[in-house]
Design a protein around this nucleic acid. Sequence first.
DNA 1: CATGAATGAGGGTTCATTCAT
DNA 2: AATGAATGAACCCTCATTCAT
Lengths: 192, 192, 192, 192
Amino acid sequence: MPKIVNHEKYKAEILSKCVDILARRGYSAVSMREIATELEVSTGTLYHYFSTKEDIFKELVKFVLSKDIEELQVYSKGEENQSIEKRVDALFNMVKARESYFQNLLYIICDVSRLKNHEEEKQLIAEAMKEYVTIITKHLGITNPNLNRLLISIILGTVGQRIVDREAIKLEEVTEVVKDFMGVVLANTFTF
Amino acid sequence: MPKIVNHEKYKAEILSKCVDILARRGYSAVSMREIATELEVSTGTLYHYFSTKEDIFKELVKFVLSKDIEELQVYSKGEENQSIEKRVDALFNMVKARESYFQNLLYIICDVSRLKNHEEEKQLIAEAMKEYVTIITKHLGITNPNLNRLLISIILGTVGQRIVDREAIKLEEVTEVVKDFMGVVLANTFTF
Amino acid sequence: MPKIVNHEKYKAEILSKCVDILARRGYSAVSMREIATELEVSTGTLYHYFSTKEDIFKELVKFVLSKDIEELQVYSKGEENQSIEKRVDALFNMVKARESYFQNLLYIICDVSRLKNHEEEKQLIAEAMKEYVTIITKHLGITNPNLNRLLISIILGTVGQRIVDREAIKLEEVTEVVKDFMGVVLANTFTF
Amino acid sequence: MPKIVNHEKYKAEILSKCVDILARRGYSAVSMREIATELEVSTGTLYHYFSTKEDIFKELVKFVLSKDIEELQVYSKGEENQSIEKRVDALFNMVKARESYFQNLLYIICDVSRLKNHEEEKQLIAEAMKEYVTIITKHLGITNPNLNRLLISIILGTVGQRIVDREAIKLEEVTEVVKDFMGVVLANTFTF
DNA sequence: CATGAATGAGGGTTCATTCAT
DNA sequence: AATGAATGAACCCTCATTCAT
């Protein structure tokens, strides 16, 4: 009998621990030794679970995206009967609580687009983005996809700006502007 | 001192050629050899003009930001008397024409935030962002900084999404939504 | 002690399965994992029967040499009354049928001579070579050791050439030349 | 201007120094660090001249084979009018003087046949063998290719045996047997 | 007895950087 | 100023081996 380890479970555990370090240090800049040290395992163990560094990253992309969307779906429950302002509030509260996830998403987008043979991962991210649109659509009750895409732009662009300067733009202020904007949207009949 | 002039000029020329390769490949992933090869010079020559790889990147950040803002300032001239729709159009036409610049900006933000001892560069980017706000303010004639920050979010977030999927979101559609929104903004008295 | 019998039996079974892979891939190039995979056991099992990789190889050398000589002795029986031509034929038929064994022998000679602390194995091979001489002596009825050594040279050199080019030299042609030569040897009184 | 180095010449110098170490230690067993240390250069320098370890080996095979044949051709001159005994003597004196070359040849045959994608090198060795036949043919004045192939078998098989046991078989004794044999060959009309 | 998870030294290779020319 | 040869630390990855189960 081997050492009793749930291979898949432990692999998932390693993967989840990799998210932060890979986002923070960057795919190219981080070394396997560095990851191993941070995870308090040997490089050999890392390679026991993942065949290459790229493999870690590719599995990590899948993992992050699926986990994100799961959690987003959870958050969007039980808000159906609220006013649009409340729902925008809830959306941006979620963004605020999960700001690092969205920043990691940006980091991952940059890393993926610089990886060779990354078409599969680009595809995954593209699909995840579509999921985000679906979730926001359901959550806000606004069906215009362009508008929901724009909301994702606002979220990504804002967390992106906040990477370099946390004081420059506040999620609360963005929330207020968006709420006002949504009020206008609902009060008028726009082309969108 | 003609030699120094040539030195500085040639250095700037090298720098400008570095922007694409560094953005495309990433600071950590690209090697000095690769840069030298792409520039058709020797590594020795590279080191004649820049003391380290990090030095190239840091000077490049300054160079890109200053050049961007220069060009942005040029673009914003002669639009003062146009309608808000026209001015939003002009803004997004500029974004469209310079999409790769804004994508590089995102890449640079990611690279900078992963560089050790990057406070100076973060600061530079933060200042550049403020410049962008100023330019947009002047260009659109809208003084609310939150709103202008939001526009930058929209621009960055949109080009970010377009990195992974050019079909997912179109700058033209974003332009339309923003124009509608700006029309409402000017027709009403919002808190912002 | 039936368990010990099984242990030794299984060990011998493993060893016999190792011959091909070790000869084919080479001692240094093959890994314990590779051997284990090919044998459809775990590395742990391999280490249960052999203490080190070198140990496998050393035992394998003994195993191959003893098995070879056993089989050679079997073959040389019942040929005593044949003509010299028939006996040379029989010898080379055996070589032909066991060509891969002789090629493995060459491989093993190369591997052994590159192993550190290989004196014991060199010694074993040297003794096996002497056994070959004895067997050939008995088989052909020619007692000149130099001549029999020469026959071994011919066999080894021929299978060696055939490693790189199976068409370059045929065992049948070698057999004919050797038969003619042996006819002359018996018809004359040479110094050897 | 760069450091003045004749790239090709220095590369050839490195290569020639590699022959012994690679033959002695074996392709798989020797490390680039070990080669570099023995050559008193850095690993970086090794990779400046050769793109991979395999590249060194492949170039080395070409180098050894071409150099061998060059030298063999030199040796075979000026022997045309000698008796067959004298010419066999000269042949085996050459073999004796260059025994390590022939042993290396055996090592290289083993290494090449264990390398993946080694068809080109096998081909080169096969061609070199044919050259050896041609040279021996010219040198001994015996045109039967089977006989000359057999001589190569004798040479290779003898130096092969001598790898494990220098006392087991002496080149002088082999020379005598071959001389007698050649006398027989010339005195009779054999089928070969 | 048998497994395969775990280790970290060492494999081939690339890197930023230095420096003789 | 410009080159590219040279360096050796550090890269990703594999290895023989150990050991808990």
